[in-house]
Design a protein around this nucleic acid. Structure first.
Length: 507
RNA sequence: GGCCCGUUCAUCUAGGGGUUAGGAUACAAGAUUUUCAUUCUUGGUACAGGGGUUCGAUUCCCCUACGGGCUACCA
């Protein structure tokens, strides 16, 4: 029988998670949902010096916005609690002792200065970063090189130590990555990574292996930056005798900066003029896609497409479709550059799929920010009219502000070109005719206006642009008669009348 | 430097021993729309290079180049 699929998303709370991190969470989530498994949120907070207040909440909220739900984790608890590694300190101590006992790890008493000294001594042009490995360990202060008496004395004297993994001298380590296939390393190239720090905390390398084992994780899905340390993890499983429980690995391609080279970094912040984070975080000077007006559906749609593609021509996916289609075989191997332009287009597509009712709801925050008070039915109508024009949710208001406010300014260019003062009378007559329309609908207004225009031999180009400017201030927007319909008779007529006067003063 | 991973249009990508190398975004032109947006049509640009294997390679293998990641008592 197949084991129940259990995945974890395990960020470290050292700052804001950008879209790369959330994409990792998403892929974990999609795989879990597809296979009816469970998703765990674990906090890898073993480096207390880098802890950032609020980072855990930021991750949780970002995932929530994206619709990524966890079955267990720091915020919801679960049968394997605690899910914060700092609260699991004692567990690791016990396990690392096992490694010491079976000779696969050792105490190292070297001070930071001594390590530095060793590196300086060993550094050459050909080897700019000497490692603490199966060679150098013989010359350092550790329980491999030192006599048992010396080691015991140091232990009794409470001398600070770390525990390092004892990498074999020449052993092939390979594993089958779900995305990359077989990846091979030789243990001689690997260093004796610290598993347990002198402050009593494990390092990531120990903690993630122990926790994944204890929490019965079946698949480890993480960024490509972890590929080089994967063999150390594989070795650790082996040393614990957990080879058969070892999870499958899937190392995701990195997300590259929108411009320039390299992977997207937490330190990139806001410098591309486009948010790289799901949410805003004021204290950290970070702006969010959500606040920018991204729909959650569009957000997960485009981050999913960064490195993954189901194969067909389809580009727009709902969450359910993403779950249905997702597989690691269809995740690419090479890094994907984040393209704000495509992200915008995807958002636009999702906005078009929304109903006026949904959009009106989503527009509320923008309306409130602009102190707009309006009838819900009215807002819905405006949204329906504006939705083909919006890329971001606030555009619904920005591009159609004149539905909620007075016109800020008139496009004088068009007025000068199109307005003829001698037509004042006929326009006033037209407006008066409009005022007689009883059932003030798009069709009725159109019929009346067109009849009038035919009768007085007025061309479309002589009337419509001016009406448009009169009603909206500028030359763009929804169809004129639809605008009038939404605006209502009273407001439409008033604007038209006001505009005729205005036009004459501008001449 | 070492180790590991990668390389198809500007970008995201499909494809895969024989294809006019497909789609999408962006860009450009045109049509529709009285405007804008939408929509539609059209257009240009890509298999990093060199060796093999093969009747044939963009596809398989090797090398080189380039890009990236890692190289902490950070994750």
């Amino acid at each position: 029988m197949e084991k129940k699929v259990r995945l974890r998303y395990a960020p470290s709370p050292t700052g804001a998670q950008h879209i790369g991190g959330i994409r990792t969470a998403l892929f974990n989530y999609l795989f879990v949902k597809k296979h009816g498994g469970e998703l765990i949120l674990r906090s890898e907070d073993t480096d207390q010096s880098r802890f950032v207040e609020g980072a855990e909440e930021f991750v949780i909220n970002s995932c929530k916005y994206a619709g990524i739900e966890f079955d267990e984790g720091i915020h919801v608890g679960g049968p394997y609690a605690p899910y914060r590694q700092s609260e699991r300190k004692d567990i690791y101590k016990k396990y690392v002792q096992q490694l010491i006992d079976n000779g696969n790890a050792y105490y190292a008493f070297d001070t930071p200065e001594e390590l530095e000294e060793m590196r300086n001594r060993m550094i050459t042009e050909g080897n700019p970063s000497p490692a603490y490995d199966h060679i150098t360990r013989q010359y350092m202060k550790n329980s491999v090189a030192l006599s048992q008496d010396e080691v015991e004395k140091k232990l009794v004297n409470n001398e600070p130590y770390v525990i390092r993994i004892k990498m074999p001298r020449n052993e092939e380590i390979k594993f089958n990555d779900l995305i990359r296939g077989w990846v091979t390393f030789n243990s001689s190239q690997l260093d004796d990574k610290v598993l347990f720090k002198s402050d009593g905390m494990p390092t990531y390398h120990l903690a993630n292996v122990v926790d994944d084992y204890l929490m019965k994780i079946t698949h480890v899905v993480r960024g490509e930056e972890w590929l080089p340390s994967a063999p150390t993890h594989v070795m650790t499983y082996k040393f614990f005798g957990w080879e058969n429980e070892m999870p499958q690995f899937a190392h995701l391609p990195l997300i590259l900066k929108p411009e320039g080279n390299g992977k997207l970094s937490k330190r990139d912040g806001d410098k591309y003029g486009f948010p790289l984070y799901a949410l805003e975080w004021k204290e950290q000077n970070i702006s969010g896609l959500k606040e920018k007006g991204f729909l959650p559906e569009a957000f997960i749609n485009f981050i999913a497409l960064l490195g993954w593609h189901p194969g067909g021509d389809k580009e727009i996916f709902t969450k359910e479709e993403l779950i249905q289609e997702f597989s690691f075989e269809r995740v690419g191997k090479s890094g994907a550059r984040f393209d704000p332009e495509k992200a915008k287009w995807i958002n636009q597509q999702h906005i078009k799929m929304k109903s006026g009712v949904e959009l009106a709801e989503l527009l509320q925050p923008t309306l409130q920010k602009n102190n707009v008070i309006a009838d819900t039915a009215y807002i819905i109508k405006v949204c329906e009219l504006m939705k083909d024009r919006a890329v971001f949710i606030p555009d619904l208001y920005e591009f159609g502000y004149y539905f909620f406010n007075d016109i800020k300014s008139y496009d004088t260019e068009t007025i000068k070109k199109k307005w003829k003062p001698e037509r004042t009378e006929i326009f006033l007559q037209l407006i008066a005719t409009i005022d007689t329309v009883d059932n003030f609908t798009e069709q009725n207004i159109e019929a009346v206006v067109k009849a009038f225009m035919t009768e007085y031999k007025l061309g479309m180009g002589e009337v419509m642009p001016l009406f448009r400017v009169a009603l909206a201030g500028g030359l763009q927007g929804p169809p004129v008669f639809a605008m009038m319909d939404v605006l209502g008779k009273k407001k439409s007529v008033a604007r038209l009348q006001f505009a005729v006067e205005k036009f004459n003063t501008l001449q």
